[in-house]
Amino acid sequence: MGTSSSLFDSAFLVKLEQLHLLSRKLFRGRQHAERRSRQTGASMEFADYRNYAPGDDLRTVDWNVYGRLNRLFVKLFEAEQDLHVSILLDCSASMHWKGEVAATRSALCKFDHARRIAAALGYVALANLDRVNLVPFGTDLGDDLGFVRGKQQFHAVLDFLKRLPDSPEPARGQTRMRVCFQAFARRLKCRGLVFVLSDFFDPEAADAMGLLHRQQFEVSALQVLDPVELDPGLSGDVRLVDAETEVAFDMLADARLLKAYRAEFDRFVAELEHDCMERAIGFVQTTTAVPFEDLVLRVLREKRLVK
């Protein structure tokens, strides 16, 4: 597991800058930080006319119409509203677990990898003048960063991510996504885009994301896995300890059991993806072996999570 300082070093920042440039190049011609809303406001987009009322700003009077009709009308513009991007980061013990076999393939645990992805998403959002909030969760919902806006706030995002504990508190219990997401929906008054970065090793994960969807959030699920979880490679007599509950479990790992494990794992992922599809929730699966910039630029684009 990497430390926070090395996790967001200068090389990482350079990659983020490249990521920003690449995203701009990919989606050239789009106006950033301009999200149309139903409210009228001070944006440049014309919405309607109404009669002049005393007290209106004279700068909004349409003098051309007055010249033709000899009546005062004021122009109404669509109000520009910032997009609220919430990044829900799973900080449970299972995210801090790293497979021993995969040590040579990836130096990062799932949590570090998710932190990097969260930083990248936050950077892209801040660069687009959106409001970004980071919300850690696990057994319970943690304290969030609070919405920040502007690229200059990126250091606050990084500081928040660095302050997240590198190792979980022992035996805190199993991830409770439903409880956490309910608390998140209650806490957040404004709706917006929600990225959930987790391994989703919770039987109620799909229901929890469905809850957000029903609360008018636009949810995107990003499942971060360790390669060892896909191919455990265990053999012989093993005492397995649950990383979250520390419950031990003795078993004899043979080829038959590994085959059954893989079948169960694939079934779980397939059901999760199916549930997300039914609820119009974007779903992406990745592993710590996939570089995060590839994930952000290629995988998220393919999954239409980034326009």
Partner: peptide, 16 residues
């Protein structure tokens, strides 16, 4: 036995 920590035992229990 060789003690190995795993992210979740959910799938192992189902397989067994």
């Amino acid at each position: 036995r060789r003690v190995t920590t795993f992210s979740t035992l959910m799938f192992w229990r189902r397989a067994l």
